[in-house]
C-alpha cells in the first residue's frame, strides 16, 4: 500500500506519443578539451554528452528532454586506436567503421575487425562510436560484450574532475562521467571470436589468451554475463558449454525467444566458439 502511495507519476507512455519528428530544444556546448566538457557537465543541469548522436537522437525523438548537450567531436585525441605500452587504447569517439578498418587492432586482436564489419549497419558504423555504444550499453549491444570478454577497462573522467579506470561492465550508469576510451591488455597474444548469428536473441563472445579464455554472453541479460574458462584440453567443449549454459543466471523476458531457448543456445554457440578456438579457426 505504501509503495503505491509514493509511486511516482508514470512518464508519458511511449506509444501515446509516437512522433519521431520532435526533439526538444537544448543548449549546445562544443567542448575542445575533456576538462572543458567535464566542467560544462558539472555546470549544467540535465546535461548529456554526445558522440555520434545516434542513440541520443533516438531517445530524444521518443521524449527524452535534455537541457544541455555537450558535443565531444572537437576534442582531439578521443578518436582513434593506438598502442600505449602493453595496452591498446580505443578512443571513445572511434567509430565502428574505424574499428572495422583498423590494421593496428587487427594485428593485436585478430578477429575484432571482422566482427565489427557486421555490427549495426553501414550508416551507423560511419557515425556511431565505440564509446557511445559502451555507455548506452543496451543488452544487445556488442561493444560491452566484446570489451568484457577482453577484460577491457574504461578510462573515465568523473564529474568532479578525477580520473579512474573502470571495468567496462560498470560503465553507463553515471551519465555525468566522461569516457575517454578503453584499454585492452595485449601483453600476451589475444584473439576475439564471436557468434552473432542469433543476434539480437543471443550473442556469444570469446577472448582467447595463452593463459586462459573468457566468454561473454549478451542479449539475454541486462549486462553481459562473463565466464572465465579453463584452458584444460581434457575437458570436452560440449560439456564446458553445457555447464556454462546451465549455470547462467536468469534470462530477461523477451517476446523474440524464450529463456529456455536462449539457455540452450548458449551451450550450442559457446561450444562452436570453443571448437573454433581449439582449431585455430578465424
Amino acid at each position: 500500500m505504501l509503495a503505491q502511495a509514493i509511486h511516482p507519476p508514470a512518464p508519458p507512455h511511449p506509444i501515446a506519443m509516437r512522433s519521431r519528428k520532435h526533439i526538444s530544444p537544448f543548449n549546445l556546448v562544443r567542448a575542445r578539451t575533456v576538462d572543458e566538457a567535464g566542467q560544462a557537465m558539472a555546470a549544467s543541469r540535465n546535461a548529456r554528452y554526445v558522440a555520434g548522436g545516434i542513440d541520443l537522437i533516438d531517445l530524444m525523438k521518443s521524449g527524452l528532454e535534455v537541457g544541455t548537450i555537450i558535443s565531444l567531436d572537437a576534442i582531439p585525441g578521443l578518436r582513434g586506436i593506438s598502442l600505449e605500452g602493453d595496452r591498446l587504447f580505443i578512443g571513445a569517439l572511434t567509430t565502428h567503421a574505424d574499428i572495422a578498418e583498423s590494421e593496428l587492432l587487427h594485428r593485436h586482436v585478430p578477429g575484432f575487425r571482422e566482427i565489427w564489419a557486421t555490427v549495426a549497419n553501414l550508416r551507423i558504423r560511419m557515425v556511431g562510436t565505440f564509446g557511445g555504444n559502451l555507455i548506452s550499453a543496451l543488452p544487445h549491444y556488442d561493444a560491452p560484450a566484446a570489451c568484457a570478454a577482453l577484460g577491457a577497462v574504461g578510462r573515465v573522467r568523473k564529474a568532479a574532475g578525477e580520473y579512474m579506470d573502470a571495468p567496462v561492465t560498470a560503465l553507463g550508469g553515471d551519465k555525468s562521467a566522461l569516457l575517454e576510451g578503453t584499454f585492452i591488455d595485449v601483453h600476451e597474444p589475444v584473439r576475439l571470436l564471436a557468434d552473432r548469428s542469433l543476434h539480437p536473441v543471443l550473442s556469444v563472445y570469446l577472448a582467447v589468451r595463452p593463459t586462459g579464455m573468457r566468454a561473454t554472453i549478451a542479449c539475454a541479460f541486462a549486462r553481459p554475463h562473463v565466464i572465465d574458462l579453463p584452458l584444460d584440453a581434457s575437458l570436452a567443449q560440449a560439456d564446458v558449454a553445457a555447464e556454462v549454459a546451465a549455470s547462467a543466471p536468469a534470462m530477461m523476458e523477451s517476446s523474440i525467444a524464450s529463456a529456455a531457448y536462449q539457455r540452450r543456445m548458449i551451450a550450442v554457440l559457446l561450444k562452436r566458439l570453443l571448437k573454433r578456438a581449439a582449431e585455430r579457426q578465424p
Binding site: 519521431r20 549546445l28 562544443r30 554526445v50 548522436g53 545516434i54 537522437i57 533516438d58 558535443s71 567531436d73 553501414l122 550508416r123 551507423i124 560511419m126 557515425v127
Partner: peptide, 18 residues
C-alpha cells in the same frame, strides 16, 4: 541516406551542428 564528405550517413539521425 546522404553523403557527408563522401560517407553515407542517415540524415534523420544526424544533428545539423555535427
Amino acid at each position: 541516406t546522404i553523403l557527408v564528405d563522401g560517407d553515407p550517413v542517415s540524415a534523420c539521425s544526424t544533428f545539423m551542428f555535427k
